[in-house]
Structure formats: structure tokens, C-alpha cells
Amino acid sequence: MIRAWRTVRVLPPLLLLPALLLTGCGTEKASEKVSAGTGPGGGTSTAAADPAELASRAKALGIAPELVYVTESPGYTLARQSVGVSGDDGFSAAYWSQRAGTQIELRVDRITFTAGTCAQQPVGGSGASDGRTKCTRDGDDWYRTAGTWHGYAVPKQGYTILLSGSGVPRETLRKAALAVHRPSAAELDGLLPPAPAPGATSSQPVRRGDLPPNGDGAPDNSVPCEGC
């Protein structure tokens, strides 16, 4: 079933990643747990994450467990502030390269690409659609371009994995697409915050351990009160 593209609720934070990571420099060490080299071929454990633990953590954020994936790319590190929901119950994250000043966006959503619908879907943060997206086959995947953005769509059964970037070499994106995999136990630890404690209610917010103790905190949106 072909579904229309959904609004990605975490897209604004992704576009602000460079500023976020610069202001949080030195405070977001936990994000280094999931970075280039932690997947297949990396030096850390690749034992599969416990399915029940993955499901518990993902559902606490409104993400379908089967849509949680990670990737790896030399020089790129997961920005944990970017992890969130895409569409209704999809998954979204971004990997940032401080040296290159670019990011790779990873999204997993319940959409299906065909030769007739691929051009109607935007590419990453380009916003391009309605035929402005150009699609070409690359093996079983789709290589897609729109303006300065380009990336890969990797079809799965009932959903699609999307990797995209602006200013990122095509070969880098291709290798990142090939490296996409389900998170290991070590990767899950640095990817999703802990699940709510047993007995927690909806009125008890989930404590996100991925947020740094200082820097990158929520902005002060209070409005000064005159004459209070």
C-alpha cells in the first residue's frame, strides 16, 4: 500500500544540529556510544539488542520497534538530540561530521516507492516533490536527488529506510545505506533513553538521559510580565 509522505516531527531540530552540537561541545559524551565503527566490523560488541528491551524503549517514544535502525559512516557520530519519531510511528536520527560540517539523515517510515511515486517524495530537508525529485535505480535501492540534497531509499517489507544529506558525497551515502542494521545491545544503550520505570503513569514524563546537564537545554520561552 502506497502512503503519502508524512510530516517529520523532528526535522526542525535536525536542521539546527550544527548549532546544537557546537554549544553542547564537551557535554554530550554519551552520543559517542553510537558512532562510526560500532556496527559490523567495528571494535565494540555487535550482539543483537534484546527485543523486549528495544520494544520497551522505542514504544516509550512512540516509535514502532521494527522501524528502529542505525548505520555507520567514518567521521560521522550520532547526534542523540536528533533521535525521535518520523510520521506516525517511524524512526528518525542524524549523524553529524564536525570536520565536514555535514550530516546524514536516517529515517525509517511506512512508505513504499515505485517508479511512479518516487519522484513525488521529498529528499531529506530539500522539501522538493511533485516531480522535482529525480530517481534512478541503484541495484534494489533508489538513488534520489533534489536540489543540493541526495540520498538512498532502501525498500523493506512494509516500510522504507531513507538516508540523505546535502554536501555529503554519494559514495558516503551509499556506504551508509549498505551499513544500515538493527541496533546491537551496545548501540541501543546510546540510541534510546531508558524505558519508563514499572508503574509509571502517563503523567510521569520519561527521563531522557541523552540530554546533557548543561548546554543544549530547552530554551526559556517565558514572557516577561509587565506590571505583575
Rank of each mutant, 00 (worst) to 15 (best):
S202W: 13
P194D: 11
L162V: 00
L211V: 15
L211G: 08
L191Y: 05
G165P: 05
D210W: 10
P169I: 02
V168R: 00
E171V: 02
G165A: 04
Q204G: 12
G190C: 11
A177W: 04
R182D: 06
E187T: 05
D189I: 05
P198R: 12
G190F: 08
S184H: 08
P193N: 15
S164Q: 01
R170E: 13
H181D: 07
G209N: 14
L162M: 00
S202Q: 11
D210R: 06
V180G: 07
A185S: 12
S164R: 03
Q204C: 08
L178F: 07
G190K: 06
A179R: 09
L178Y: 09
P169E: 03
G167R: 02
L163Y: 02
R170T: 02
E187Y: 12
E171G: 06
P194T: 05
L188D: 07
A197Q: 15
S203R: 13
L163A: 02
H181P: 05
P196K: 07
D189G: 11
L163K: 00
S202G: 11
G190D: 12
E187R: 03
P194Q: 09
L211M: 08
G167I: 01
A195W: 10
P212H: 09
S202D: 15
P196R: 08
T172K: 01
G167T: 00
L178V: 06
V206I: 12
E187K: 09
L211Q: 08
S203Q: 15
P169K: 01
P183C: 04
P198N: 08
K175I: 04
V168H: 04
A195I: 05
L162I: 00
S184V: 01
G167Y: 02
A186W: 13
R207C: 13
A197R: 13
R182S: 05
P169H: 00
L191N: 04
G165Q: 01
Q204M: 06
A177R: 03
A186P: 08
R207G: 14
T201Q: 11
S166G: 03
A179Y: 13
L178C: 10
D210N: 14
V206S: 14
T172M: 01
A200T: 10
P198V: 09
G190A: 09
L191F: 07
